[in-house]
């Protein structure tokens, strides 16, 4: 074998072994680092028990903190995951609106006897969630709501903020 051939072969072997070592260390590193991309959590949010139905008065909105089990990485705790504005209508049906403002994600409060308002950029919404003034690009986000065994259950969801079309975040 000519010297240059042998040298080329040795270089090839060195490349091969070097890549092998790098691969053994890097593959598990990437597996761990990229886990958030590999395993996306399914949207399996459960209905959260919010408030007894009898505590809601027709026409009077009420802000309710939603408490649920929160698994954060390796820890598990019970905590507030979000808040909803609940409103019982004259026909007895109940609606739930997310308290997260669709504009910049601030927390929506009650502004007047007939409106909600966001303190960050002065958006105002009707109790049905329609924007009345301010920069909000869309209606307040409705949340799925159910009444079971005399209690109001709400499904907590987050939506992409700052865009016109509503889609889950």
């Amino acid at each position: 074998m000519a010297t240059s051939d042998r040298r080329g072969f040795l270089k090839f072997l060195a490349g091969l072994f070097g890549s092998g070592i790098a691969a053994i260390a890097t593959v598990p590193l990437l597996g761990a680092a990229l886990t958030p991309l590999i395993r996306r959590k399914d949207d399996d949010a459960n209905l959260i028990r919010a408030i007894p139905e009898k505590d809601l008065i027709v026409g009077v909105p009420r802000r309710v903190d939603l408490t649920a089990v929160v698994v954060d990485g390796w820890t598990r705790s019970v905590g507030v995951v979000g808040a909803a504005w609940l409103l019982k209508k004259a026909d007895g049906s109940i609606s739930a609106l997310s308290s997260v403002c669709p504009h910049s994600g601030c927390s929506i409060g009650q502004k007047s006897k007939a409106t909600y308002g966001c303190p960050c950029h002065a958006s105002a919404f009707s109790f049905e969630g329609a924007p009345l003034e301010g920069p909000s690009p869309r209606d307040m986000d409705p949340l799925p709501v159910e009444v079971k065994d005399g209690a109001v259950f709400v499904k907590w969801m987050r939506f992409k903020i700052g865009v016109k079309d509503r889609r889950p975040a």
Binding site: A25, V27, L29, G31, A32, T35
Partner: peptide, 11 residues
Amino acid sequence: QLTLGWMLRGL
């Protein structure tokens, strides 16, 4: 819970 986490820690 991590992909190949056991391998990473074992290595």
